[in-house]
Amino acid sequence: MNASEAAVRDRLTRALRERGDEIADRWVQLQRERAAIDIGEGELREEADSLIVLLGGALNNSEHGMESVVDAHHDLRDAVMELSLRRERSGANPTATSLAILALKDAVLEAVQRDNLDPREMFPAALMINRLLDEAAALSFSAYVERREEIIQRQSRQLLEMSTPVVHLWRQILAVPLIGTLDTARTQVVMENLLQSIQTHEARVAIIDITGVPTVDTAVAQHLMQTVNAVRLMGADCFISGVRPSIAQTIAQLGIDLSTILTRATLADALAAAVEMTGQESPTAGAPTNR
């Protein structure tokens, strides 16, 4: 069995080396037929050539078993991952990329067949090709998932960092536009940032805009109340703006008492009220003067 496997490997290696051009042409053709791939023919051909050479080299190296040929050969592995990345950038979905790699099976098998192989040898050869390229296709898919995972993690980190900006909106007036779900950890970050800014800017009014908060449940309402109370304890006033009708309904249904809290429908309304409260000239009456 080992001897026969070695023979099949040898045969495939030879086919990849001697009929490399054919295989590459056929693969490019198949890819263009089967998957809508937006990559130029020249580039596809170049990619095919180098991958076929690497596959041949990997098969020729009999140190590793068939279970993980791709994984064991770093240059081959890198080439597959690079291919996966290139396809993703060209707009191909991960399924199309996997199918493109699997199309190489047909190209190789057709070439091997042309060598007038004994049917008894043909079957193990087909099996080996299958295993090899299935592994490559699976790798391209998991590489795709990994890249997505990375993006998601990076974005959620960035999101948390950027999610609580305190904006100095007007003289003595600060605003925090909240976007996304409010949980305990975020509320605490918001509270700390806001209160620190109130002290730094000697602000008299803070506006918390919840236009971007999708839902308000009991916990979120409680967090909002805490923040408003903390602002008030500092000696500033606090508006909540951007309360959408659906949220107002939820709050009413939950029986949460927000009656002590100053609310406005929009950030603009809240700003106008805040300006009035601080006894300043209305922003709508013209640009702020230095008076």
Binding site: L195, I198, Q199, Q226, N229, A230, R232, M234, G235
Partner: peptide
């Protein structure tokens, strides 16, 4: 600020007490 945050979390609103910055 840390005192205000802690008081708010404690649930103490100092109702009826006027505050200034």
């Amino acid at each position: 600020p840390p005192v205000a945050i802690t008081l708010a979390e404690l649930g103490l609103q100092l109702a009826g007490v006027e505050t200034a910055l």
